Amino acid sequence: MADFRGDQATGLRRLLGHPQLRSISFTAGGAGVGQSTAVANLAASLARVGREVLVIDEHADVGVASFFGAFVANDLQQVISHEKRLEDVLVQVAPGIRVLPVARVVGQLGSLGEREQRTLVTCLAGLLPPADVVLVDSSLDHPLGFSPLGLAAQETVVVVAAEAAAITEAYALIKKVSLGYAHRRFRILLNRVRSEVEALAIHDNMARVTDSRRLARLEYAGWVPLDGQLRQASRLCQPVAALFPEAPAARAYAMLAEQVLEWPPGNDERGGLEHFVQLLLHLSQRIHATAIYA
């Protein structure tokens, strides 16, 4: 059943010019842990409860759009250089879900001139319909070692598979970003686990280590079970909830969507997407690779 009170509140915020935006960056310590799959399925679950979702995708090859069977031809870089309109670059992959490819421009944000910055802020601030939730699918290969989109987002979710190598890589990423950029809080999403008991055990062990070494505070975001129906839906380029709504993974993503909407929206509620982009540009011009690799 739709939450009409929530819809009225959202409409009122927009009428008064105070959109409430949630921005969440997804990252991982290494490849193959299901990060993009998690972003795609969470986006679908959020759209199913009436939220407008903007996925900012840093991947040049197989990105979130491909999980919906959509093809990406353009990039935000072409909007900044006035070759394309934002409408030409955005990919509507499903009702309520748009994907914005940024692979070509994300490494150049720190060197944009004033005119290019103004173009970027203006075009995204005028996005219609406005986004309720921004999900960032971060690349592991950013030249700065960690995407500035991850630093600008209100929340950073580290996707961790229930494998020893993935856990080690996730810890190394958290340590690197904590020491390099003083980023002290992460949420942990456990993926491909056999039970919530296993998920909580992995999270608690990681949290205990990072806390004892005063690196960061890790908060539990939830867990997604190892589910053959999720793999089958991915092969068919569909969210698991669309094909198998009763699958364990579908229920897990629905629960994650509910929890995401309950997370505190941060201090930029009044600025919306424009504030997010301005913060992104600010951070991009002030961070450098030597800090994170030192």
Rank of each mutant, 00 (worst) to 15 (best):
R5Y: 15
L16E: 08
G17L: 06
R22A: 04
I24V: 04
S25I: 11
T27S: 13
G29H: 02
G32E: 06
V33M: 13
N41F: 02
L42I: 08
A44P: 04
A44E: 07
A47H: 02
V49K: 04
R51D: 02
R51N: 07
D57M: 02
E58Y: 09
E58L: 11
H59G: 08
S66N: 13
S66C: 13
F67Y: 12
A70T: 11
F71S: 13
V72L: 00
Q78G: 09
R85C: 04
E87D: 07
L90N: 03
V93M: 03
V93N: 01
G96C: 00
R98L: 07
V99Q: 02
A103G: 06
V105W: 13
G107P: 10
G107Q: 12
G107I: 12
E114G: 07
R115W: 13
Q117K: 12
L120M: 09
V121R: 14
L124G: 06
P129S: 13
P130Q: 10
P130L: 08
V136D: 03
V136C: 07
S138P: 03
S138R: 11
S138T: 11
P143S: 13
P143I: 05
P143W: 06
G145T: 02
F146D: 00
A152M: 00
Q154R: 09
E155G: 15
V159G: 09
E163R: 05
A164G: 11
A165E: 14
I167K: 04
T168K: 09
Y171H: 10
A172V: 03
I174M: 06
K176M: 09
K176Y: 05
L179M: 10
L179I: 11
G180E: 05
G180W: 05
A182P: 05
A182D: 12
R185G: 12
R187L: 14
I188R: 01
L189E: 02
L189F: 07
L190P: 01
R194F: 00
E196W: 01
E198C: 11
I202H: 10
N205K: 13
T210S: 12
T210K: 07
R213S: 15
L215M: 11
R217F: 08
A221Q: 08
V224G: 04
P225L: 04
D227S: 09
G228F: 14
R231I: 15
R231W: 10
L236G: 08
Q238D: 06
P239Y: 13
A241E: 09
A241Y: 08
L243Y: 05
F244Q: 04
E246G: 09
A247W: 05
R251L: 10
R251W: 13
M255T: 12
M255G: 08
E258D: 12
V260Y: 00
E262N: 05
P264V: 03
P265T: 05
P265C: 07
N267C: 15
R270W: 14
E274I: 08
E274A: 09
F276E: 06
L281S: 03
Q285C: 10
H288D: 12
I292F: 00
I292R: 00
A294C: 15
